[in-house]
Simulated assay, not measured.
Amino acid sequence: MMKRLACASLLALVAACGSAPVAPGFYRVERGDTLSKIARSNRQSVQSIVRWNNLNNPDSIEVGQVLRVVPAGGTSTSGAIRSSGGGSASATPRSAPAPVAADSAPSAAPASSISLVWPADGTVIRRFDGNNSKGIDISAAAGTPVIAAAAGTVVYAGNGLRGYGNLLIIKHNAEYLTAYAHNRALMVKEGQSVTRGEKIAEMGDTDTDRVMLHFELRYQGRSIDPSRSLPPR
């Protein structure tokens, strides 16, 4: 379920979502990446990348997550591996061109704020803890309207991120994104502008074991507690 959410941080989001370029020696996870693929592309071992990034689960990386791909000294290790396909692999980290990651660094207090409305009516069955849960889960009947928590542009609409089912990601500005997972139906498309409170999906149970909405808020690519930006209920 969402334990794998530390696995997707959304939403490729972040790269394609206009986040800042990564620093030399780092790589931003793109849609379709695996740790093995990233290691091969940067001529490193999976074990080294796991160690440098303190990853508890090598299978749980998220789109948009920033990973260190060279040691702190800035040079490649003697344990580096070459691309298995025989093709050349760049040792220079790439900056992702385009959308949910164990986060690459502890979440700092956001320098700015965003005001959200609740994305769906229902019962909160799981809250943000920053580790196993990167957002909040809201349970209601199948088909319950899911609305945009704030105005923005849809940067992802699909089911290509494992653990999210039918997923929408909305970019609100250069710093904030929201993600809406497990929907039964998606009512908007990538590139579409949406207004706060506009219906964007219907609640469902895709890629999970019960009907619910998994809702995430990302600040500069890192998950933060959405409850702090939502009105009391």
Rank of each mutant, 00 (worst) to 15 (best):
D33P: 08
P71G: 15
G85P: 00
Y164P: 00
I114G: 00
Y156V: 03
R82A: 13
A142P: 00
A149C: 10
L167E: 06
V70K: 12
T34Q: 09
P99F: 09
S76F: 09
I49E: 03
G122H: 01
A111T: 14
G79K: 14
A141D: 13
A98L: 03
V117G: 11
A108I: 10
I38L: 06
V146W: 00
G143Y: 11
A89D: 09
V146N: 00
S95K: 05
A96V: 07
R31L: 14
F26Y: 14
V100F: 11
A151E: 13
L35P: 01
P58L: 07
G165R: 09
G135F: 02
T34P: 07
L168P: 00
T123R: 12
N159E: 11
A111I: 07
T153W: 01
G32H: 10
P110Y: 11
N132L: 12
D59Q: 15
D33E: 10
D59K: 14
R31T: 11
R43W: 01
T92C: 03
L55I: 13
V154W: 05
N54G: 10
Y164D: 09
A91I: 11
Y156F: 15
S83A: 14
G158V: 10
S45E: 03
G165T: 07
Q47W: 07
I61F: 04
R126H: 03
D121R: 14
D121G: 12
V69S: 03
V100Y: 08
I49S: 05
A91C: 02
T123L: 09
K134R: 15
A109G: 03
N166I: 02
I49P: 02
T144L: 12
P21A: 14
I147F: 03
D121T: 13
V155A: 03
A91W: 04
L167Y: 12
T34H: 12
A96W: 00
N53S: 06
